[in-house]
Design a protein around this nucleic acid. Sequence first.
DNA 1: CCGCCTCGAGGTCA
DNA 2: CTCGAGGCGG
Length: 682
Amino acid sequence: MSQPEQKTLDEVATLRAELDDANYRYYVLDEPRMTDADYDRRLRRLQEIEAEYPDLVTPDSPTQRVGAPPDAGFPEVQHAVPMLSLDNALNEDEITAFVKRVADRLEIDGETIAFCCEPKLDGAAVSLVYEQGVLVSGATRGDGRTGEGITSNLRTLRSIPLKLRGKALPDLLEVRGEVIMSHEGFEALNAKAREEDGKVFANPRNAAAGSLRQLDPRITASRPLEFSAYQAARFEPDPGDATHSELMARLGDLGLRTSAALEVVTGSQGLIDYCRRLGERRDRLGYDIDGVVIKVDDLRLQRELGFVARAPRWAIAFKFPAQEETTTLNDVEFQVGRTGAITPVARLEPVTVAGVTVSNASLHNADEIARLGVMIGDTVTIRRAGDVIPQVVRVETSLRPADAREIVFPERCPVCDSEVERLEGEVVARCSGGLYCGAQRKEALKHFASRRALDIDGLGEKLIEALVERDWVKTPADLFRLDAERLASLPRMAQKSSDNLVAALDKAKQTTLARFVFALGIREVGEATAANLARHFGTLDALMGAEVADLEAVEDVGPVVAAHVHTFFRQPHNRDTIDELRALGLAWKEEEIGERPQPLAGQTWVLTGTLESMTRDEGKERLQALGAKVAGSVSKKTAGVVAGPGAGSKLAKAEQMGVPVLDEEGFLERLEAWESGRETEQ
DNA sequence: CCGCCTCGAGGTCA
DNA sequence: CTCGAGGCGG
């Protein structure tokens, strides 16, 4: 192969610069200079040259946005800095309350505080990592700590630069933002889909999120997705900006798009004004938003405010009032849950609320029905509470038809005809049938097989229904007596599926005590309580033999839970099922009884600044597991302070008071030593 | 609660 | 091609 001439090298450099610049102008500055045709022509020319001289191809070339198709699933990605959620403010009073909280904590006048505001885009949150200015990884939010690596899909977005612009590039930049689809893009995509196969997306948010989860990046590339940055999670070396808004401007300089509607305002009135103005413009923005993100602008103040459990104290999301629609209540169905709780569910004439079709809504209980005063046939107003769960807000009584029927709460279980009882002082009514009731049995089995319980692969809702309806399975123990041959006679269950299920059941037999206890479905015993019980008693026999007082000694177990557990294990049919399960081969390693050594018992520790290898919450948990208390402020009694980068006043105070300070490296070293029991005190 | 994607498997039809 | 299970995300 011939070597490229200097002329060719120059042309490649020029084309790349022009293409990058066109993207930047189009997506970041919103001032397109180049027509699409010109862009495509240059891109094709670059592709030709790169095809001729493959050595010239670099990963950040504009031709390299669409990478190799299908690889096996998306890898897990740990977020170095967790992606937190924000507290909500649902009205102007709650904005005022937020300002007051911030002001009180900082001991300054709230009306002087500067806040950075921007629209809260309704899309999918992602995190991008740039090393030496080059995009190296991109991931979804996931649960905030761990997301999915969707780098090859994110690379196809032209508003995501493959390399950052400018001379002074950070060594490391982790930027958070939202991937959205504009109304225009969404309409165009659906118009095309309608022509081709008739399958259309329900709303821009789902279209954006769905597009990101494609295994084939070529499909993602064909979707009109846009990225807009809202936060720098890591920026090294520290750019030295004083405010969040300056930092956002810097991201813009680096070639990242940020919100055009970003504004810095002062005090609660400034915030309320901004929210009102944006609310008025909402319909004309061209993309979906569900509110306003408000952040304390001064980064020093942000550090001082710090975090509570899952959210920063220095930010809040103002949510616009939920969209409401009216529809008719066609019927009410009473569903029976795992514990026998009877839930009235409104069957509604399907109606689109905020982009999704709603046809069911829980009415919760008899009190709620009475409160609403709702009848079958009524016109009702529906809203999606917290943007997710449909809710009947009120009845349009004036529209009530003459033939509206009263909703009669059943006195007998709609599934098994057992008596329905409602205990004194409780709002929920329950079917008294226990596992005699088919509905409860199905729910109990579903729970037993669920992922966090015994995790029986392939045993889903429909299959459980079929098994219960045929009376093949009455208790969890019956599951393990199923044989492949009989299963294969079920609809949609042939040889392969049956064998798989039998294998999955066999695999599920080896479990842990905590999972097993959780799987039993004892009232009020969730995953966490089950783990506590397992750890405390160590063996199932010890747990089964425990008296109420013994149970109450377990962490987070009070009289109510203790009574439920005690009663459960006193029931002969429960004991029989457990015996059968054990006879059928269910087994687990007996847990270590009691606590691990607690070398830090009685000590108080303080964490400040950011840690790289873990979140502050994780650090806290690990310290607590060692017996330490973790406090928010430094005092004379503080045994030690762990200071990550960005530590402020707490570090200064510790130094002043002569409290020992560990950096992250030192902290990790000690943690490992303590946890392994090599060291018993600090 | 709803929508979306992926996968494995079953059923249908040529 | 369709269905069910499983997972993700808001």
